[in-house]
Amino acid sequence: MNGIVWIVIAVAVVGLYVWYAAIVKRKNRVAEALSGIDVQLSQRHELIPNILAIAKRYLAHEQTLLADIARLRTTGQERLGSADPKAIAEKFTAENQLTAGLGRLFAVAEGYPELKSDALMVRAQATYQEVETNVAAARRFYNASVTALRNACQIFPGQLVAALAGVGHLPPFFEAPAEHRGPVNAADHL
């Protein structure tokens, strides 16, 4: 009888350890994905001053929008590297606001043919598109990692070992900006 009890205890301990190791691995994967996002966001931040400099030459009447973008960029820049879940969530919100601001800027640029056809602006916009694709890819990697970590922590016996593995608050998802979740123009993809 004692033997069976010890075997059950041993199996439970081994099972908990395997679960603990899985949570640690997934926590590290989230950290890796988060740093990947920071790399891409940093590239986006480096590109913004160039875009603003080109836009300033043509958009004299849109100084408020340009100033807003510059401010949001500074805010986003300050929050890069934060590891606390609350700060991460704020960072994502700020970045989404920045994405929306840039979206407005490019929409306004549509009304200025000279700016739209400026060679530097065309190149900056193409680079921005590439950076945005990479930000989206990093976001998908991060969200997939967060999902895996959440599953490991929230499914029994994950709750028992999550704290031991150093996972207090679960990291937030990085939601896509609202305008990216809207209906898609099929003609752009055909």
Binding site: T133, N134, A137, F141
Partner: peptide, 28 residues
């Protein structure tokens, strides 16, 4: 690991850079 279940079922994807792999393998 990709989000598209049909793609996940039909293909296996391996990458040396998780972000770059997803930058190519967009949902579209």
């Amino acid at each position: 690991r990709l989000e598209d279940p049909a793609f996940e079922k039909a293909y296996e994807v391996y990458g040396s850079d998780q972000v770059s792999a997803r930058a190519l393998l967009t949902p579209a």
